[in-house]
Nucleic acid binder design. Structure first.
Lengths: 345, 345
DNA sequence: TTAAGCAACTGAAACGTTACCAACCAAAAG
DNA sequence: CTTTTGGTTGGTAACGTTTCAGTTGCTTAA
């Protein structure tokens, strides 16, 4: 026979053994009312003795606040989201909250499921990295009174707090930088997802091209997925074109690293034969061969402001109009970008 | 003025509007007793109408089961743990559970904190990747009746279900493979953490050396941290030694990739000047230059069996003795390992 | 005609907390 | 001597579910 079921021990047991009322125990534990030193001590030693763990479920029910916040990410296997979630967890834990992170796997439906899960759980707040530009479910969440902040991705009609990056500007800068290096045949490895910031970035790209009178090559615009593999095969497609681009902008570092690998397979010397630029600056970038030039994604400030905004709402310090903050990005130039020497007509 | 606080809507509201008792509503929602078709329909349409979300907190309290399971990982930013957690989340979500993953950041103290958090949350079960060989807190968790399974890392005195890999055998195989390639001066980039599987792997290493009468070079055994950077600088240390190793075993792929980068910086040609072998086979391995030879970490089987075991315990299908399953690993040879051509005396 | 069986539903007691409303007591103030 | 004050403590009603133990009204068997 297996072990006896250990009887659940509750605040009542503590109260009885310490010879006080359960109210007093509650006050002592939560520091929510003056309790005399001696009684407090008695309570705490009893708690130790009988290994009492307060039942947060019961507390949450009574208090109508769970100290839970949810985070919905498109894919935790993407290093940049992993980092983001690690920072957020750290900050929220610090503030006494428990984080539940949920993968939407780039699927709107899973995102919705996660959201209703978080609602039935009565999460005190939610941070979402939307997986599409659809946003109704988020709006209705906000409308129903749950504090929420949208992270990373721009959405068309936002009626919530949001913090994201200046996608268009970042790509504009990157493109301008490449043009400055003498590149005029610039490829673009895009993301095959229906997200709004994809459009924004494309606009930045085109704007820079236009500004400098550089031609936009439609055939150099190819779509990629969300993995190294996707980047590699997209690059392969791009390299079929003759003549090909002399520089390539990748939607993110994963794609860029995949592309880098393909270049090697095609005996191309990066950056001399071809420049490549990533996006995100994930830790790997300094360790690829050659080191990847990219755009720094301000994960810490991102996570930090998102947490601040959310906690502000939760604690009702922040009221009224929704705020949108957009953070600037910086190019980080390493070894995969250089002057265009091919001078192909 | 901000929006009016929307009155919370409960099962009572549904009951009243549908003209039935709350008991019936509960039975209808949970399919836990026969309810006539018409009443059921009435209930569901009302639920839609007033946008009722069952309160899982209240349910959990009453039912004494939260449908929450916790996962404690050392560092979610390590791709291999990210993958593991993604798979686990998928499987558990499938089974109707909600996963809470918590980072211990390789710290025993944070691990303990996470564990007590999960206990106060009344998680139905816990999966732990221990961050040290200390295990008392896990044992006492198990003793107190919480289903738990230990993942990935061996611990000395396990009194819980566990699934891990055959660390010693894996390194034994890898070492033997390198010896077979003619290497006799083999470096070892170890992990600077106090974990038991570190010892196991070292034993496997030494066993293979002994078996083939290859000398163990103490000076080639250097400690590294948990990042690319750590691998890079550890490799730098290793390369100071003259004469140096002709092959290197890295504790994990992160370290190996860092090491690879350092080799490049030192103008070493991998694998001709030096062979490198990683551990884990994270997705990146096929995209490094050159592609990293490594050891495949069976993440899916790992996650799968862990979930199975845990759910078995939670549903009381599994009783009695704790089970330990250990999974085999396979070498995956790519481009960073080759015959020793240097023939340095 | 009664008893028994069945399907469908209901009332209300838990679950373990928190927090409101008190009460008590001693000391200080009037 | 009465009132006030402040520092302590207790009883107990909620919180929103789930589920046990009935109840009701019908049909079928005896």
């Amino acid at each position: 026979m297996t072990e006896k079921e250990t009887k659940k021990i509750t605040i009542k047991d503590v109260a009885k053994k310490a010879g006080v009322s359960i109210a007093t125990v509650s006050y002592a534990i939560n520091n929510t009312r003056q309790v005399s030193r001696e009684v407090k001590e008695r309570i705490f030693t009893v708690m130790e003795e009988i290994d009492y763990q307060p039942n947060r479920i019961a507390g949450s029910l009574r208090r109508a606040s769970t100290k839970i916040v949810g985070l919905i990410v498109p894919d935790i296997a993407n290093p940049i989201y992993a980092e983001l979630s690690r920072i957020i967890e750290e900050q929220l834990t610090e503030a006494g909250f428990t984080l539940i992170v949920s993968n939407s796997e780039h699927s709107l439906e899973k995102e919705k499921n996660s959201l209703t899960m978080l609602r039935t759980m009565r999460a005190d707040g939610v941070i979402i990295i939307p997986s599409s530009s659809k946003t109704d479910h988020i709006n209705s969440l906000v409308k129903s009174g749950v504090p929420a902040v949208i992270l990373d991705r721009t959405v068309e009609n936002i009626v919530a707090d949001a913090v994201f990056i200046d996608h268009a500007k970042a790509i504009f800068d990157a493109t301008e930088y490449l043009i400055g290096l003498g590149h005029s045949r610039i490829g673009y490895l895009d993301k095959n997802l229906n997200v709004y910031h994809k459009t924004l970035r494309q606009e930045g790209f085109r704007a820079a091209l236009d500004k400098h009178g550089v031609e936009y090559h439609k055939e150099f615009h190819v779509q990629a997925g969300t993995t190294f593999e996707a980047g590699a095969s997209a690059m392969e497609v791009l390299l079929q074109k003759k003549p090909g681009p002399s520089a390539v902008l990748a939607f993110d570092d994963l794609i860029a690293v995949g592309a880098l690998r393909t270049c090697k397979d095609f005996q191309l010397d990066v950056p001399n034969d071809l420049s490549i630029m990533g996006f995100d600056d994930m830790p790997l970038c300094s360790y690829t061969v050659p080191r990847l030039s990219t755009i720094f994604y301000p994960r810490f400030r991102m996570a930090d402001t998102a947490c601040r905004m959310l906690l502000g709402r939760i604690n009702d310090e922040e009221e009224g109009e929704y705020r949108q903050v957009v953070l600037p990005l910086d190019l980080v130039i390493r070894e995969t970008t250089s002057f265009n020497e091919t001078r192909v007509k």
